[in-house]
């Protein structure tokens, strides 16, 4: 553990609410502590040097997905990034691209995720006669539950959206998070939507056939979700849906 180093942070600063404010990079220095994460460093900076610094966090344990930002060119979670990872002791922080900027490192991923869920109808569509609150739910096979759980691990941090050049070029593209969630309901035996129904949602340039397989999602996902296999699976499924 490199102890006693002085870390230099280059942080993007811009407050769209502040009239006349312009985007700029601001330099901060801080003493490194053992086991320090970028998230801890940011909190110390805000506490001791600049209370106006804006960034998001809730859980500080890689579960809430709030503290995603671009750290030295890699979009990832600040709470899971140790400062000791950077031998040069220089860390550049940028807000996630592709989202509405709230201020500094804080972006509105929630608005994006909500719109996506409404647009792709990302909730279970059960059979009408199956909704009976007086009856015990039908059990699910453990294998199926495990498969769904694997895809449910997504924390909606927005890293896959920011890492995707296709999404940056095509604003209406659903991104890996959208396809991951569609795949989750496609695999769910309780969901009544057919392959054709899903085709009408993601069988276009905004969905699987717009994906250019740049794999920024696969390479940056902080939860290591299997985006590459999942999108390939959906693509194969959709490619044979309407023939």
């Amino acid at each position: 553990m490199s102890q006693g180093r002085t870390l230099t942070f280059n942080i993007f600063r811009y407050d769209p609410q502040e009239p006349g404010d312009k985007p700029k990079m601001v330099k901060y220095q801080i003493e490194e502590a053992p086991g320090m994460t970028v998230f801890i460093a940011l909190n110390m900076l805000r506490e001791k040097q600049d209370p106006s610094l804006q960034f998001d966090f809730v859980c500080r344990a890689g579960i809430c997905g709030s503290c995603a930002m671009v750290i030295n060119g890699f979009p990832t979670l600040a709470c899971r990034t140790l400062t000791s990872k950077y031998p040069k002791a220089e860390i550049t922080l940028m807000p996630l691209p592709g989202f509405e900027l709230i201020g500094d490192l804080s972006v509105n991923t929630g608005k994006f995720m909500r719109e996506l869920a409404e647009r792709l109808k990302l909730w279970l569509h059960p059979k009408a006669d199956e909704v009976d609150i007086h009856r015990i739910e039908a059990p699910m096979a453990p294998e199926e539950a495990a498969k769904l759980y694997e895809l449910e691990r997504c924390v909606e941090c927005g890293v896959c959206v920011s890492a995707c050049a296709t999404k940056q070029m095509r604003d209406t593209f659903v991104g890996a998070v959208g396809m991951m969630k569609i795949a989750r309901f496609e695999l769910d035996s309780r969901d009544t939507r057919s392959v054709e129904d899903f085709y009408h949602v993601i069988g276009n340039q905004d969905g699987v056939f717009g994906c250019m397989t740049l794999l920024g999602c696969q390479d940056n996902c902080p939860k290591d979700l299997p985006h590459m296999q999942q999108i390939a699976y959906l693509r194969r499924k959709m490619a044979t849906a309407l023939v």
Partner: peptide, 12 residues
Amino acid sequence: ASLGSPWSAKAD
């Protein structure tokens, strides 16, 4: 994008 067209899959 409009409703899924079979041409999207064909083009890919």
